[in-house]
Simulated assay, not measured.
Amino acid sequence: MLSIAALVTIAHWIPRIFPAWPYHVAHKYLVGAKAAIAKHDENLKKFRFVGGTPEKLPGAVIVVIGESANRDHMKAFNPDYPAETTPWLSKEKDNDNFYLLKNTYSCYPLTEKALSMFLTNINQYNGRDREEMITITDVANKAGYITYFISNQEPSPGNLSLTLVSGASKKSITTANPGGDDMKIMDFLKELPTEESQFIVIHLEGSHDRYRDRVPPHFDGVHVEGQKEKVNDYDSSIKYTDEVLKNIYQYAKDNMNLQAMVYCSDHGEDMKYFHGDSTFTWSMVRTPAFVYLAPDYKKSHTAVADNLRYNENMVFTNDLIYDMVCGILAAPNNEYDRKYDITNADYGLSADKATTKYGKYLISDDVTI
């Protein structure tokens, strides 16, 4: 009986410990990812625009993926914050062409799980799974844009949506020594043609820990007396991201006929627990998001601009970026839902219906709402 009990115990625990358990998880993911990639090709064959192929915008549309940015630490979103961490955005928020989505939340406090919805037609509310995946880059390709992907993060074979977005792009670029200075993004942005209808996804390293490694030594960071060094380091990384976003925006506006720019972080950050899958805090999912629409774009797409202004204080979760981008591109399709498009008059996600962590928590439970 002791031998049988020992064998049962071993059989139960051996597959659940290192290295057996990581191997099992990796193998299961790779099998599922291979199946999802195969299904993705089938999904593209079924993809259709509603009302015919949309007319391309005469310039650049840029989507910037932030990293670990908490809007509570951003002066533009939180005017009472003791440090000016967003000097550029704080100035531009009064610009009629900028829209700050002040009640944005991440769908999940982990990069891979957040981006699997951030970049695709899958969200917390529509019941789709990754074998039904269509990406924002797929939509842009089908609409005839020249597509680019520029990343300052290490390639992650575990991130299926990023793999599909980078793989579908006409040109996919990862910076040398990814994870360092996000301003390196500009070197590659400046190499792109300036007279195309193009769709560009940029993935920043942002404010991922270690925070001080995200800021070059010469940068004038944040030094609030009495504030913990870790918080000052984090705020400095937020301020540096503001500078990077300013450079992306200004260059694209001056040289690429920038039509629209969307920025949103994958998830937030807690100063004690960071972010992750175990302990949950609202700081991990309070993310910043803003949209810039060019004056010429607003003249030809007045409904999009008006609806976005009307909805900008409503709750928004970053798994709805797909629908928003489809709205900005005027590209409704069989994977798009206007009730999840914050640029549409029918957008109606309320705090008591919006969720985070894949439906585990209601946004209405956040006391800041």
Rank of each mutant, 00 (worst) to 15 (best):
I185C: 06
V50M: 06
S283R: 11
E67T: 09
D72W: 05
V201R: 05
A26N: 14
S364F: 01
N333F: 08
L320E: 13
I37R: 11
S90F: 06
T137H: 01
I200Y: 02
K113M: 11
V31Q: 03
V139E: 09
L204N: 07
C326T: 13
A114V: 10
T194W: 00
M183R: 08
F77V: 12
P54G: 11
A6V: 15
P54W: 06
V244L: 01
I122N: 05
C264T: 15
L245Q: 03
M186H: 09
N313P: 04
G158V: 02
L204V: 06
H218G: 00
A143Y: 03
G327F: 12
K75Y: 15
N103T: 06
N232G: 10
M117I: 00
M261S: 09
D365P: 06
V25D: 10
Q198E: 15
T9W: 12
T175L: 13
G221I: 11
N311T: 03
K190Q: 14
G348K: 14
N70P: 12
E243K: 12
G180M: 00
E154L: 11
N307G: 08
F18S: 15
A20W: 08
E205H: 03
V285L: 00
L162F: 00
T86C: 05
I173Q: 01
P288Q: 07
T287G: 08
I150W: 01
S207E: 08
E84S: 11
K230M: 11
V64S: 08
S207G: 04
K102W: 00
I173R: 01
F47V: 05
T287H: 03
N313Q: 13
S156E: 13
K228V: 02
P87D: 08
I136H: 08
Y347N: 11
I17A: 03
Q153A: 01
D365L: 03
S278Q: 09
S68R: 10
Y292V: 07
K91N: 10
